[in-house]
C-alpha cells in the first residue's frame, strides 16, 4: 500500500494510491485535486454581478432569482456530471479489469472489461494540442480475429497523470497480468 504525490499534465498535484489485495488483484486510484473554493466563489460572484447589473438597468426582479437558481443548478450539474473526484482501476487476474470514475457528488460510473477481451495494457503517446502526452490504455481483442488489436480504451481520462505515475501503475498491472 502506498500513497504518493504526483502531478498531472497541467502540473496540478494528484495522488496515486496503489493497493494490492492479493497477488493477482490490485487497485490503483488516482485522485485529482478538490474543487477550489476561490474558483467557485469567483464564478458565482461574476454571475451575480452580471445579474445585478442587468437588474440595475431594467429593474426586473426575476433576473436576480433566475441568476440564483442558475448558479445553484450549475453548481449541482458541475458536481454531478463533470467534476471527477477520483478514478480507479481494479485489475483482477483472469477475471477482468474494472474502471471506475467517481464524481464529486458521489455518482459512480463503472465499466468492466472481461479478461477474455483484453489483449494487453500499454502506455501510449499522443499529441494533445501542442504537447505530447502519455496515457495508459487497454487494448481489446478484435471479436472475430483474436490475434489483432480491436478497440483502445484509455484509462484515467480526466486525471491525465504524467509518465512517472503511469509507469508505476503499468508495472504493477503487467505483474498481475503475467501471473494469471
Amino acid at each position: 500500500m502506498s500513497d504518493e504525490a504526483f502531478s498531472d499534465i497541467n502540473g496540478n498535484r494528484i495522488s496515486l494510491d496503489c493497493q494490492r489485495h492479493s497477488d493477482f488483484c490490485g487497485e490503483f486510484t488516482v485522485s485529482s485535486p478538490k474543487l477550489s473554493f476561490l474558483k467557485v466563489t469567483g464564478c458565482t460572484c461574476a454571475l451575480w454581478l452580471c445579474a445585478y447589473t442587468i437588474f440595475f438597468f431594467t429593474e426586473v426582479t426575476e433576473v436576480l432569482s433566475v441568476a440564483i437558481m442558475l448558479s445553484l443548478v450549475g453548481m449541482m450539474g458541475h458536481l454531478h456530471f463533470l467534476k471527477i473526484d477520483h478514478e480507479s482501476l481494479l485489475v483482477i487476474g483472469s477475471l477482468g479489469i474494472q474502471m471506475t470514475s467517481s464524481y464529486a457528488s458521489g455518482r459512480e460510473s463503472t465499466t468492466f472489461i472481461e479478461m477474455s477481451k483484453v489483449k494487453d495494457v500499454v502506455i501510449n503517446e499522443a499529441i494533445y494540442m501542442q504537447r505530447v502526452i502519455y496515457y495508459l490504455c487497454i487494448l481489446l481483442k478484435e471479436p472475430l480475429h483474436p490475434n489483432e488489436v480491436g478497440d483502445i480504451v484509455p484509462v484515467f481520462q480526466s486525471c491525465k497523470p504524467r509518465l512517472n505515475c503511469l509507469i508505476e501503475i503499468y508495472k504493477q498491472c503487467q505483474e498481475i497480468l503475467a501471473q494469471s
Binding site: S22, I92, L95, Q98, T110, F112
Partner: peptide, 23 residues
C-alpha cells in the same frame, strides 16, 4: 449493462472475496 466488482475482504492468508453487483 454489465457487472461491477467490489473488494469484500482483504486478508492475505485467505482467499479473496469479491462482491459482484449489477451495473
Amino acid at each position: 449493462a454489465g457487472v461491477k466488482f467490489r473488494i469484500l475482504q482483504n486478508d492475505k492468508e485467505r482467499p479473496l472475496h469479491l462482491l459482484m453487483e449489477i451495473n
